[in-house]
Simulated scan of single mutants.
Amino acid sequence: MAITIKDVARLADVAPSTVSRVIANNPRISEKTKKKVREAMTELGYHPNFIARSLANQSTQVLGLVMPGSTSTFSQNPFFPTVLRGLSEGAHKEQYALQMSTGQTEEEIYEGIVQMVQGGRVDGIVLLYSRVEDRVMNYLRERDFPFVMIGKPYKYAEEITHVDNDNFRATKEVTEHLLNLGHTCIGFIGGDLNLVVTVERLLGYEKALGEAGLELHDDYIIHEEFLREGGREAINELMQLEEPPTALVVADDLMALGVLNTLDEMGITVPDDISIVSFNNVLLAEMSRPPLTSVDINIFKLGNEAAKNLIQKIKDPLEPVKRIIVPHCIVERQSCTRKR
């Protein structure tokens, strides 16, 4: 005979409605009561029927995740598995599952999100990026569908809950770090200019140079994909200049790895010939040769906060709009030295 909520309630000496609230992790139930009910569930071998609960509540207990590009990009850049761990942990705490978009093109991704929303497959959406122009964001706003963004919205920032770093400030700080080491010819390798994170980091770099009284050289600014190949292409272009930079701000560790590999093939030594600072502080920054000075943006926390705040918004549509800024720090390693 199947164990029911009533059986659990009887053993825990609480009302069946209390058991339901414990299963739903209702914050109004005390930790003492939750512990007692969960012990009763374990003793009886009771497992909640989440499908039945979802049907009754008209809820899927699923969060949709939207990537900034194809799944191949997701699999190559360590940023995404790390942010996914944070999202997964945040969702698991509230007994939510995750469903990723799987399109290979922007059109396929957009159509996939429309199917997610209109098919009632998810309760809310996390955008793992912020674009200058984005059909998905516009669609979600028009439908008043719960969503949060990882990154600062280019538009409607006061209307959209988002989790972000202060990318302007972080890039200004690392550029100043290179300036303090005596470098005046500093290049910038950024990602897609349609991504707000690229725009914010470029502005921080430009601000630091401006405050130092240095002229901005357009030839020193290259934009490529956040991939190792992007770093390779960018550094090939920069090193062909008549006066190449002596230091670089690279917007992503994976791109920086491509830069390091290519410089090694050219016989150019880091940091003796050129200093490099990058972003994300993923494991490959520590494992590269030389180990990279990198900005730790706490990727895990970005994902965790995004999941937590989306679930709050789903549970309470009147939850106020929030801007959550995750702190960053510069982790100094061996890829920078004083200009000689």
Score class of each variant (00 low, 15 high):
113 I>V: 15
294 S>C: 02
6 K>M: 12
212 A>M: 01
303 G>I: 00
92 H>Q: 15
269 T>N: 14
51 I>E: 12
25 N>E: 07
30 S>C: 07
274 I>M: 11
200 E>G: 03
202 L>W: 01
322 K>H: 07
300 F>L: 01
215 E>L: 11
103 G>D: 00
312 Q>T: 10
212 A>V: 14
212 A>T: 12
315 K>I: 03
269 T>E: 14
325 I>K: 12
331 V>K: 14
258 G>R: 11
79 F>C: 05
46 Y>V: 00
237 E>N: 15
110 Y>K: 07
100 M>S: 12
169 R>I: 09
13 D>H: 13
118 Q>K: 15
272 D>G: 02
102 T>Q: 12
216 L>Q: 06
131 R>W: 04
105 T>Y: 06
323 R>F: 00
158 E>R: 12
231 G>S: 05
63 L>T: 06
72 S>F: 10
287 M>W: 06
127 L>A: 02
2 A>P: 15
28 R>A: 14
40 A>G: 05
53 R>G: 13
59 S>K: 15
161 T>P: 06
18 T>V: 05
19 V>A: 03
250 V>R: 13
276 I>D: 12
62 V>W: 10
171 T>R: 00
104 Q>T: 14
186 I>D: 06
32 K>Y: 08
203 L>F: 04
300 F>V: 00
130 S>D: 02
64 G>I: 02
250 V>N: 11
297 I>P: 03
285 A>E: 01
130 S>C: 10
258 G>Q: 08
304 N>S: 11
185 C>Y: 14
133 E>F: 08
246 T>L: 01
241 L>M: 09
45 G>H: 04
82 T>Y: 01
187 G>T: 09
134 D>C: 04
205 Y>S: 06
299 I>H: 02
262 T>C: 08
55 L>F: 09
49 N>G: 11
9 A>C: 03
148 V>G: 12
269 T>G: 00
123 D>N: 09
263 L>I: 04
66 V>G: 13
194 N>A: 02
230 G>E: 00
111 E>M: 09
149 M>S: 08
339 K>E: 12
210 G>I: 10
98 L>G: 02
183 H>R: 04
136 V>C: 12
21 R>Q: 10
312 Q>E: 15
297 I>V: 06
46 Y>I: 04
149 M>D: 05
178 L>K: 08
11 L>D: 08
88 S>W: 08
115 Q>P: 11
93 K>S: 13
300 F>C: 03
134 D>Q: 07
78 P>M: 09
252 D>P: 15
297 I>Q: 07
135 R>L: 11
253 D>G: 02
325 I>H: 01
64 G>L: 00
208 A>F: 09
325 I>D: 01
178 L>H: 06
209 L>G: 05
121 R>Y: 14
269 T>A: 11
124 G>T: 06
334 Q>T: 08
216 L>N: 10
13 D>Q: 13
321 V>Y: 01
139 Y>W: 01
151 G>R: 04
204 G>M: 05
251 A>H: 11
25 N>A: 08
165 N>P: 07
